[in-house]
Simulated assay, not measured.
Amino acid sequence: MITKFFDIVLGTKRASKIGILGKVKGWYAAIEAQIRGSLHGHLLIWIDDAPASPLDMKEQMNSDPEFKQKLAAWYDDIICQSFPKDTVSYKVTEGTPKQLPVLSRPLDPDAPDYKQKRDQHHRDLCENTGLVHGHNATCFKHIPRHIQSLVNPDTDCRFQLPRPLVAETHFDDDDDLVIRCENGSLNGHNPTATLCLGCNTDLKQTASGSAAMAMVEYMGNYTIKLQLDTAIVFSALCASIKALQNKPPQDVDGKVDNSEMTRLMMVKTTNTLVGKRELTGQQTVSLLLGRKNNYTSDEYQEYWWSSM
């Protein structure tokens, strides 16, 4: 599915190379397993012909008002923070089994009432896939317990939700982007992507600079992170130290080789962690089917621990 999403929805295999976000220059997708086991992806997407940096973008906006207007219109077109008009909140008909929108059949685009049903289905998906934020303990976990009784959910949420309502997408006096928002608890998303995938599809604009670097590191961690308890990590480290203390590596003169000991410490600890890595059933099946844990438009040099 993820390759089809890139090929068709993002347009990378179309003749025009244009998809729902415009012309895509490159992408990187990391596949992660949630606590309950299901797999989902985190994607970084680079748009072709985008300004090289936020500074370049601001200079172009200041020198070309038409570019600034078109840029705001583009953001308004691809990022949605509002429910479709003339739709109602999702509800289950009394006396019938609950049918989650994510499990329903695709709508018939040739049906005369397709647009109305599509808009309602869009809202149903938003309300059933986690796109609408609801406060929980995670929102206030950094607030000391002895003052949590004084928490105001709408002002103290660490995710800063609900966000203020905004009538139209624009750039403020500091040239910072402000996306149109008619529902402060609805995460930014692309309706087409949400309808195609039928799942949570948060979408966020990330320019260059420190914010982009942090996002790349965050994404990289999803690719390489090990789902291990802290106790297992420390036990692996202790086992490596004990093994090297009992039989330290020696050089040709019979002295302890500290450089080799450091290398073996890394190798032994890593091997132990890899051996104890917890894989979900979905991850295991995905690997057996030859699926990747990351997808990218570019090729990278593989690195093997055995080369250390």
Rank of each mutant, 00 (worst) to 15 (best):
D124Y: 07
G95M: 08
R145C: 15
T129K: 03
N128I: 03
S89L: 00
H133R: 01
S149E: 06
K141F: 03
R123E: 03
G95L: 04
N136C: 12
D108Q: 14
K98H: 14
H122Q: 11
L131Y: 08
K115W: 14
Q99M: 03
L107C: 02
P109E: 02
Y90I: 14
V102A: 10
H135W: 10
T129F: 05
H121D: 01
D108E: 13
N136M: 07
H142N: 13
P97I: 08
P153Q: 00
H142E: 11
D124E: 13
V151Q: 00
F140I: 01
L150I: 05
P112H: 07
R123W: 00
L107G: 03
R105I: 11
G95A: 07
Y90N: 11
T93G: 04
D124A: 13
D119A: 11
K117W: 07
G130F: 12
I143L: 11
P101D: 04
K115A: 15
V102H: 12
N128K: 09
I143Q: 08
S89K: 09
L131T: 07
E127K: 07
Q99L: 08
R123P: 03
S104G: 03
T93A: 08
P106R: 03
L107M: 05
K98I: 10
P109Q: 05
K117F: 09
Q120I: 08
L103F: 10
Q120E: 14
H135I: 02
D124M: 05
R118C: 06
K115M: 15
F140G: 02
L125C: 00
R123M: 01
D110W: 01
L131G: 09
Q116D: 12
C126M: 04
R118F: 01
Y90F: 14
R118Y: 00
H146S: 15
E94S: 10
D154R: 09
S149R: 15
R105W: 12
N128F: 12
S149V: 13
K98N: 13
H142K: 09
E127R: 05
H142M: 07
D154F: 09
K91V: 05
L103I: 04
G134I: 06
E94C: 10
V92R: 15
P153H: 00
V151G: 00
R118G: 02
F140H: 02
K141S: 03
K98M: 11
V102P: 03
K117M: 10
R105N: 15
T93F: 07
P144N: 10
H142Q: 06
S89P: 02
D113N: 10
E127N: 05
L131E: 13
P153C: 01
H133L: 00
A137F: 14
D110C: 03
H146A: 15
I147V: 04
G130C: 14
D154Y: 13
G95F: 04
G134M: 10
P109M: 04
P144M: 09
N136K: 07
Q120V: 08
H146G: 12
G95H: 06
H121W: 06
S149G: 14
D124W: 07
N128M: 12
K98S: 09
K141W: 01
P112W: 02
H135R: 00
H121Q: 08
D119R: 13
